[in-house]
């Protein structure tokens, strides 16, 4: 029982990696199509990134540099835990800098910095099926995809407009990939949807519990569903980041006290830190800087 703790490079055995790589290749060949794969039991819970971890484990090599983010941040607990896992089982270099990473595993965000050719973005996906909440049965939704029968989704978006005056989907906003498959971009805010379009990086999506892998190859059209008179639009924030002064980025609301005091800061922590290093300062950072001078 003492040799229990010996595992293959990146945890998965080579047969399993080969099986997952085949699924990934198929996914790349049919952009946006959900490829069933024999998802393995991982040493972390289902729903905590087992799909993304299996994809990363299958593509990572000793030369890779890994970045892991959750909610845009490198230091959220689950990101720390997954990064530590790969350090332990693959002994790979890790980074928090988006531009230095060859593989970025993410949950709920796409980095603010534009990704470059050669980088791979691995998404953790809870429910890969964009039609799931309209039709709970897998047997039905697979048929709908096969027949390109997406009327139900448009009806849902239309009903949103009829009820609320706008499409009330704010995250996991459905997209059409390469003009064919409707795809769930994982629960990223719709703010990030435009970054997927014609991205230079390869985007891989892993859903462990639901046993699906799908992909968006580099330079692929990714169009958010909308209507001519109700075009897709992303969230806009009224103020810049309180720490680095960035505009046009996704912000987190940080509650400061129980009297309604709050500040808005970059959700992408690496982006924020980098800007501050380059001398950018937001409203909350400026006073201390002046005091130092």
């Amino acid at each position: 029982m003492t040799d229990l703790a010996t595992y293959n490079f990146a945890y998965l055995d080579e047969q399993t990696k080969r099986m997952i790589r085949r699924a990934i290749l198929k996914a790349i060949a049919i952009p946006g199509y959900q490829v069933p794969f024999a998802s393995r039991e991982m040493p972390m819970p289902y729903g905590w990134g087992t799909g993304g971890v299996q994809v990363t484990a299958s593509i990572i090599g000793p030369e890779d540099v890994l970045k892991v983010i959750d909610q845009g941040a490198d230091d959220t607990t689950n990101a720390v835990s997954i990064r530590a896992f790969f350090q332990k089982v693959a002994n790979v270099a890790v980074t928090t800098h988006t531009k230095d990473a060859t593989i970025i595993q993410t949950r709920h965000r796409i980095p603010e910095q534009k990704l470059a050719e050669g980088q791979i973005l691995v998404y953790q996906v809870p429910i890969p099926e964009p039609l799931r909440f309209l039709e709970p049965r897998e047997t039905e939704t697979r048929k709908m995809h096969a027949l390109e029968e997406y009327g139900l989704m448009h009806v849902k978006l239309y009903e949103d407009i009829a009820h609320n005056g706008r499409i009330s989907k704010t995250y996991a906003y459905p997209v059409k990939v390469a003009g064919r498959y409707v795809m769930d971009p994982s629960p990223t805010p719709k703010f990030d949807n435009p970054k997927m379009h014609l991205s230079e990086a390869l985007q891989l999506f892993g859903a462990g519990r639901e046993k699906r892998i799908y992909a968006v190859p580099p330079y692929t059209e990714v169009v958010s569903l909308d209507f001519e008179d109700y075009p897709f639009e992303i969230q806009k924030f009224e103020q810049p980041c309180a720490l680095c002064g960035a505009e046009g980025v996704y912000l987190d609301e940080v509650v400061l006290d129980d009297k309604g005091g709050r500040m808005f800061v970059c959700s992408d922590t690496d982006h924020c830190e980098e800007r501050r290093e380059h001398g950018h300062a937001g409203a909350m950072l400026a006073p201390s800087k002046e005091a130092a001078e």
């Binding site: 039991e41 819970p45 289902y46 729903g47 905590w48 087992t50 959750d70 909610q71 845009g72 959220t76 607990t77 689950n78 949950r107 709920h108 965000r109 809870p126 609320n164 009330s168 704010t170 995250y171 996991a172 629960p187 990223t188 805010p189 719709k190 703010f191 519990r209 969230q235 996704y250 912000l251 987190d252 609301e253 959700s267």
Partner: peptide, 28 residues
Amino acid sequence: VQATGFVEHLKLPHYVDFQAELALVRKM
């Protein structure tokens, strides 16, 4: 094992999505 993982994953941070919902509810 699948069920407990997915139910319990709700305790992971979801503040990015929650922020998006907050903004929507405020606007509405």
